Simulated scan of single mutants.
Amino acid sequence: MKIQLALDRMTIDEAIEIARKVEEHIDWVEVGTSLIKEFGMESVRLMKEAFPGKTIVADMKTMDNAVYEFEMCYKAGADVATVMGTAPDVSIEACLQVAAKMKKLVMIDLLNTKDERKVGLAQLDEALLCVHVSKDEQESGQAKRLLDLPESLLQNEQVRIAVAGGLTFETLRGLEARPSVAIIGSAITKATDPIKAAAQLKKYASGKEE
């Protein structure tokens, strides 16, 4: 299991600073949607410059204009970029084609995606599916279960799954299945001791603590 540090609602300098503190205990660094919207591709470029040995995720949440947006992300230094599961098939296919050409990865965000659609998207071997409880759902108290997937996908070890949305050490341990990627934001960035929090998560992710 990889630990992906989600960085949102802060400046680029603040994002780099917190990532440096916990660098030893994380695998992927996510340039969050809010960072990209506020600071553009500079946020991706600077993050890759700061952490050349880390997998950098550009959380674009692309819905359209897929080739342009994905090429832009990858050229800026992203190793992974995100597209919405509710995007048109042609857009998702374009993302996968760009990723294949540039030897990068695609993460498909399943926010507000119907189960039938999730099953269809799981057939895409090249993609990583992200089960996502939105920030608005979390803050309004309307959050659904974290691993909101059809049982057939939960039991399929061939399906690569990332989980995002208010994950903590306790909720991660309580998931019905171990995801390939655990996307952690405030449980690290807002922790009293971010290094200790990240270390605990990484220890569990590596299978050294159950």
Rank of each mutant, 00 (worst) to 15 (best):
I36N: 02
S180Y: 09
K21S: 12
N65W: 06
V106N: 01
L5D: 03
D79C: 09
S186Y: 04
L46V: 11
T55I: 13
T86I: 15
E23I: 10
T189N: 13
E49K: 14
S34C: 10
A94L: 09
F70R: 03
G141Y: 11
T189K: 11
I26N: 03
G32Y: 01
L128H: 00
G120M: 10
I161E: 02
S91G: 08
T171Y: 03
Q97K: 14
I184C: 04
G141L: 12
A127V: 07
R178I: 02
T86V: 15
A122F: 00
A197N: 07
P194Q: 15
M41K: 13
I36Q: 02
T11I: 08
G77W: 11
A127M: 05
I161R: 02
E42Y: 09
T171R: 06
F70P: 00
E38H: 12
A198L: 07
M60S: 13
T113M: 06
R145L: 09
W28Q: 11
G40E: 07
H132I: 00
L5K: 05
I161Q: 03
K37V: 07
A87E: 00
Q97R: 14
L96S: 06
F169I: 13
D27I: 02
G141H: 13
A6L: 14
F169N: 09
V159T: 03
W28H: 12
D27W: 02
I16L: 15
G40Y: 04
A164P: 04
D115H: 06
E157F: 03
A164T: 10
Q4G: 09
I12T: 09
A198S: 07
M63W: 10
K190M: 13
R117G: 04
V119P: 04
A81W: 01
Q123K: 12
A100K: 15
E14V: 06
T192P: 01
E176D: 12
D8G: 12
E24F: 09
V22E: 07
V29W: 03
I161A: 05
P88K: 12
K190P: 08
T11V: 10
F169Y: 15
V131S: 00
A87C: 02
K208Y: 03
S34K: 08
Y74R: 03
E116L: 14
V31D: 05
S140R: 14
I188C: 08
K21P: 06
D148V: 08
A164W: 01
I16D: 08
R173W: 03
R173Y: 05
W28C: 08
K144Q: 12
E151L: 09
